[in-house]
Write a protein that binds this DNA or RNA. Sequence first.
RNA 1: UCCGGGCUGGGGUAAUGGUAUCCUUUGGGCCUGUGGCGCCCAAGACGCGGGUUCGAUUCCCGCGCCCGGACCCA
Length: 434
Amino acid sequence: MYDRIKGFRDFYPPEMAARRETIDTVESVARRYGFREIETPALESAEMYADKSGEEILEELYVFEDRGGREVALTPELTPTVARMAVARQQALTKPVKWFSTRPFWRYEQVQQGRFREFYQTNVDIFGSAEPTADAEVLAVAADALTGLGLDSGDFEFRVSHRDILGGLLAAFEGEVDTRAAVRAVDKREKVEPDEYAALLTDAGLSAGQVDQFDELLATPEDRLDELVAFAGTDRVEAAVGNLQRVLAAATDLGVRDSCSLSLTTARGLDYYTGVVFECFDSTGEVSRSVFGGGRYDDLIEGFGGQSTPAVGVAPGYATLSLLCQRAGVWPEEAIETDYYVLQVGETRETAARIARDLRARGHVVESDVSGRSFGAQLDYADSINAETVVIVGERDLADGEVTLKQMESGDQTQVPVGSFPGDHERPTFDDFA
RNA sequence: UCCGGGCUGGGGUAAUGGUAUCCUUUGGGCCUGUGGCGCCCAAGACGCGGGUUCGAUUCCCGCGCCCGGACCCA
């Protein structure tokens, strides 16, 4: 016996069925918005992540030297890869580029609820549009996917913010402020004690008075965003607020405004976000961590050596998504379904196989004995796979040119001429011959 | 990397310093013809290593894994 590697999971049929259904739902929503599927490598140059996020990041990745002496990493996220792909074909691709991809990613981190070392996400990205409608479309794909899974808009909430509002406000304060540290502090606001939160902001360069003022600004409600513009008095904050308002207006047009709430304390950890950022949360708070997030990252493509290309995306992860669905009671139940079981008694293999083939050709799920089992054991098995109809192909019936059709739920059965089964019937059942 | 809890057949459990209970499950048989039931038979466990002990599944230590949390979340 070998153990499974920590943080990696096996998915047996019952769980896989639920995952398949969930992934199909999310992908079909993306397709409906015109996103095209891409497939990407599991390995990328480790340098790509180091350049983007610093050498320290390699500590959290699966990195190794391949036989050709290349430093490679198992991909921890998709964004650098799609950025690389977009840059490679930037002249050829018509804009906007709209891509999606579902696949595993790997990070060497502590296993916790909703967090594994191998995890699956569907990334949905738009390149080449800086319009608020693009941000809103990404939000809409995410919201439609969740409702498609059976959640209603009251089950989840997108907390929406804007990087330039935070950055712009911080820049408007007197004195030197470490924006990155301050943004990190904001991100922690809900998790730490007020004193500690204030201390973090003070460390970032704000005075005690400024901390209070900043905190008050962050609590500004949606209908008074103009006050932020007035406070900062800068083009940057004015533009950011205007942009955020247009994104929310576009979200209204797309019918997903109800799922969005303004939350200036939502910062997202990722440094590459430049505009609107959002995170999806469980409305009940029962799922304590962020379900997934997304946002605008206009500078990344240029940073990868491409032409300036605005981009916005979202990446639902299935580990946390399943937690949310389970909490809401909409995680798919496995229902093993089999349309027909073709039961063999005696030397009837040829006829049984012909019937099974005919039924499969009609698109049905059909099983037949592959274990040389007895009549009773076959019936047991048919029951265990929830076969709707059992076609009994036995020597005695066959001598009379007949097979027996048994409806499992009721136990009713009837004789059918073997030559007319399945005949012209698309989906023959007991009722058709009773 | 750190903190807390846990680990007995595939799943769920009981007891125990002297190798383990029950349920379920799985395979086979009764069973080449009404047999989805039932009955019978069989299979299957103390996470790994070390220590204490005459003897450890039980007590101690380390590790592994699982669950939850912190950090982190690019």
